[in-house]
Design a protein around this nucleic acid. Structure first.
Lengths: 148, 148
DNA sequence: TCAATTTATATGCACTTGCATAGAAACCAA
DNA sequence: TTGGTTTCTATGCAAGTGCATATAAATTGA
């Protein structure tokens, strides 16, 4: 094989560490404010943004990059909490639509101030505007060509 | 609160997505080659690098950013597989030393070609040398002042 | 010197995730 | 049409993780 270069190895290690550290800190803030985890927020936000506050599980999965079976059960839990509901997908009985409830919207809106503040504190403030833009551009390259 | 700027939110979202995507792909490569997960590799590599191929659980924890209780049980599993062994820490009976075994070294060495190739394929090749350096520098800012 | 505090590791129990596979509907090709 | 394939979601069971707390040793400070 082709050994990754030192620069690549270093960047990779830091990506893992930085992500772990920042996520752990943000999760801790959410938890201490009595909120559910980031995964729940991710789903709420995506569904909320969907047309009519609806999205199929497949679409959510694609947006948040969860495993199909994990999302299926996460939706079970969220539905049990009244945050979303599953409704039939017109014209295709395999699919379904996940619809955010009023309760779901309310939770997302209550979480955002805490989440947003944590993003600033543990992420944005350490970078600054210009660097955030640079980081976005670099990460985009990784997301590019999601195949292969 | 202070809303994060659009640039910061975008960068944050991409960090999460990019990390998830690349990790998922690399994990898939390791798995399909019959290897254990990245967490196992992380521990093997850290311990191997420690003085005499030894490190305390605390030190491993700090290096890889796992939770204490998760690491404790991961070490149980790795020890059961004969990859590491726990030995007493001289002069402090609270601590212990985790020592990599020959089997552990061998596994790490067999994993690296697969892991390294995957790092290149899903990460390094999409960036290039210069950009890898830029990314490292940006991520370092996030890792800086690990407190707060 | 010894009680209180801190540090290091482990563990019971509940919850979450991963793996393999199921089941059902839609699509496709002859 | 219809049999084979693909797509979408769910699920039993095993493995991993999170939370709270336990245990034991070391350190601190009065």
């Amino acid at each position: 094989m082709q050994e990754p270069s030192a620069a690549v190895i270093k960047a990779w290690g830091r990506l893992i560490r930085a992500e772990r550290m920042v996520v752990a800190r943000i999760e801790a803030e959410l938890k201490s404010a009595g909120f559910p985890s980031l995964h729940w927020y991710d789903v709420l936000l995506e569904v909320k943004r969907g047309p009519g506050g609806r999205l199929t599980p497949r679409e959510i999965e694609e947006a948040v990059l969860f495993e199909q079976y994990n999302l299926s059960r996460l939706l079970d839990r969220m539905e049990a909490e009244g945050l979303v509901r599953r409704i039939p997908f017109p014209g295709d009985k395999r699919r379904q639509l996940v619809e955010i409830t009023e309760e779901g919207r309310a939770l997302q809106e209550r979480m955002w101030p805490v989440y947003g503040a944590a993003i600033n504190r543990f992420f944005g403030d350490k970078l600054g505007e210009k660097e955030a833009g640079q980081l976005s551009a670099l990460l985009l390259r990784l997301l590019q060509s999601e195949n292969t």
